[in-house]
Write a protein that binds this DNA or RNA. Structure first.
Lengths: 148, 148
DNA sequence: GCAAAATCCTTTGCATACGAACAATATGGT
DNA sequence: ACCATATTGTTCGTATGCAAAGGATTTTGC
């Protein structure tokens, strides 16, 4: 009589399965999205594109403020801006009034790059959600916004 | 007559808003989860915990295989295992048959650490989903599994 | 006005992540 | 047996990400 493993846990221990955990699933989802992004916009990372998109939306803004709007801390946004500036996609200048601030502005080249990539960026979002039905897509995005 | 900005886009251009894009939301969700994780299990990163949890589930397994099961590429899992081995949470040994393979095994210390953190890990998942109603949690996890 | 607190940016250190290139080893087809 | 191919693990380079500490500047509280 093979009753080696009881179905009910003897210690009433919690059953942790990695593949069911929200953190693991978020990481995998991000990975899949990253792959789709890289195929459609190979010359920018999602973070770099986020910074450019936000600059396009907002116009010139201080570096840390841009970081806040794109969910990057001060150390991270600095690196991103440094790399974008090196490619001449953005320009920076010190604020005359508040000498601490560095204003970041999209260059014409950066503006053009955004406009040329905008359609691709929307395709990326669509493809990422493609496995879901249209109703599920909306509800998924809604729920994801809530837990953010 | 102030009709400067038409509600309907003249160029029928797509309107990209960063805050609505799935990639940006995934990144923000991951960030929030990471913060919750660090508060509950400060001495392990989510990735390190994932490796340990999978080893606990599966028993000894080769390094690359473990990487596949935890969604890490070969370069990433190597660094994770190196750091876990340095803390003596795992042990490694070469496979006698296949000389390429390195078997990774949870040490007693690593096993104990997992068992001691398992409850906290479940709390982390709960707290991450806390803003959602119980029904929404289940549906969110289900949808997230699909787009993975 | 002035000291304390807050804000802005920088730097360092650590830990993911991934692509690409590589050496060593196994496996497959013929 | 042999050779093309695949797999395993390593290394390097680049890019997030965050914590913590620090310097410079501005704002606030009194």
């Amino acid at each position: 009589m093979p009753s080696s493993k009881p179905r009910i846990d003897e210690d009433a221990g919690p059953e942790y399965r990695l593949d069911d955990q929200i953190g693991f699933l978020l990481r995998r989802g991000t990975q899949r999205h990253l792959g789709i992004f890289a195929r459609h916009i190979p010359d920018l990372t999602p973070t770099q594109f986020a910074a450019i998109a936000k600059l396009f939306e907002m116009g010139p803004v201080s570096q840390n403020e841009l970081g806040r709007r794109t969910a990057m801390d001060a150390a991270t946004i600095k690196g991103v801006i440094d790399r974008l500036r090196r490619r001449e996609l953005v320009t920076t200048r010190r604020d005359r009034v508040d000498q601490r601030r560095i204003y970041v502005e999209l260059s014409p080249l950066g503006s053009k790059l955004f406009e040329d990539s905008e359609a691709a960026a929307l395709v990326i979002s669509e493809q990422t959600l493609a496995p879901l039905s249209p109703e599920d897509r909306a509800s998924f995005v809604k729920l994801l916004k809530i837990i953010t």
